[in-house]
Nucleic acid binder design. Structure first.
Length: 303
DNA sequence: TTCCAGGGGTAGA
DNA sequence: TCTACCCATGGA
């Protein structure tokens, strides 16, 4: 089985970073806890589906951390395919993001620093912005377990199978979602009123009206990215800020029921804060508000 | 049965 | 910019 290796400058904790938010639980991702491995069926540009098993390699002290990608495939990989896989995994793991300023800033907060000093902060994302937008829309106004079920059904019904283990499927492409019968969404995939949003986005991409991969690669300022993201039906402030985080912009908080409950409980026990009051808690973190909140919410209260 | 979850669109002010 | 109302789904 071919294995692709990537060297990562420390500090970097593969397992903690991958598992720091819910994305490894959303199909086609699957976290194999016993093996500390992220498994995922992935459709390559050629249309072939391969199985990726991503895990940390052995490293000591200050040596670069090694990330290993074991690839199972029905055919022999070409050099181009190996390069494609490596690029996708680098993107998914945010290996090219510079978090140095966040680490410096985090050292001023003992609780948050304790959370991140081992090399965390690179939250998992999907190989394509398309997949991340669909998944983010699927997190709105539903419980997390329902989000997982919706995405599982979407992948099961529309994703291409991995030939060697057909039960494992890749995330469906915009073409596959656009071509799907709306009745299949209504009766089987069951994303509720989000069905129309997801299929509309797929149609926009297929028709060329919208290019999310161009948007993903374009190094636009956060304000412009946010405007583009909010023009997608089903993406409001919460979803846009979540997607900005996934794209490497941490200056806006994604205010959802979890954030409201955490911030109210820790900082406003006697009142019900407005969104502006909640945002003010992390104002000093400037471009790093999202990560600051994220690790603050994982930090035990000192009071 | 009712409520609500990792909200958002729309209409009307 | 703000508010009211509606939106499918599934678990508690």
């Amino acid at each position: 089985m071919p294995s692709i290796h990537i060297l990562v400058k420390p500090p970097y904790n593969f397992a903690a970073s991958v598992c720091d938010h819910g994305w490894p639980s959303l199909a086609p991702n699957h976290w194999l806890a016993d093996e500390q491995t992220l498994q995922r069926a992935e459709r390559l540009h050629s249309g072939d589906v391969v199985l990726l098993r991503i895990h940390a390699g052995a490293s000591e002290g200050h040596d670069p951390v090694q990330v290993c990608i074991d690839v199972e495939s029905a055919h022999e990989l070409t050099p181009g395919e190996e390069q494609e896989i490596a690029e996708k995994v680098r993107w998914m793991l945010k290996l090219d993001e510079d978090l140095a300023h966040f680490y410096v800033r985090a050292q001023g907060n003992a609780g948050i620093w304790a959370q991140v000093q081992s090399g965390r902060g690179r939250l998992l994302r999907s190989p394509t912005l398309w997949e991340d937008v669909v998944k983010t829309i699927a997190t709105t106004n539903v419980t997390w377990s329902n989000t997982c079920s919706m995405i599982e059904r979407l992948v099961t019904h529309l994703g291409d199978p991995f030939p060697l283990v057909p039960d494992l499927r890749a995330f469906p492409t915009p073409d596959q979602v656009a071509a799907a019968d709306p009745a299949l969404f209504a009766t089987e995939i069951r994303m509720g009123y989000r069905n129309a949003y997801v299929q509309q986005l797929a149609h926009e991409i297929v028709s060329g009206v919208r290019d999310l991969e161009e948007l993903r690669r374009a190094e636009l300022p956060a304000t412009e990215l946010k405007r583009e993201l909010k023009s997608i039906k089903g993406v409001g402030d919460y979803a846009a800020h979540t997607l900005l985080m996934l794209l490497g912009h941490y200056g806006e908080l994604a205010i959802d029921s979890e954030l409201r409950a955490f911030v109210t409980g820790r900082y406003f026990p006697e009142e019900s804060p407005t969104p502006k009051e909640m945002a003010a808690i992390y104002e000093d973190w400037a471009d790093w508000k999202y990560l600051a909140y994220w690790f603050d919410s994982n930090t035990p209260s000192t009071s």
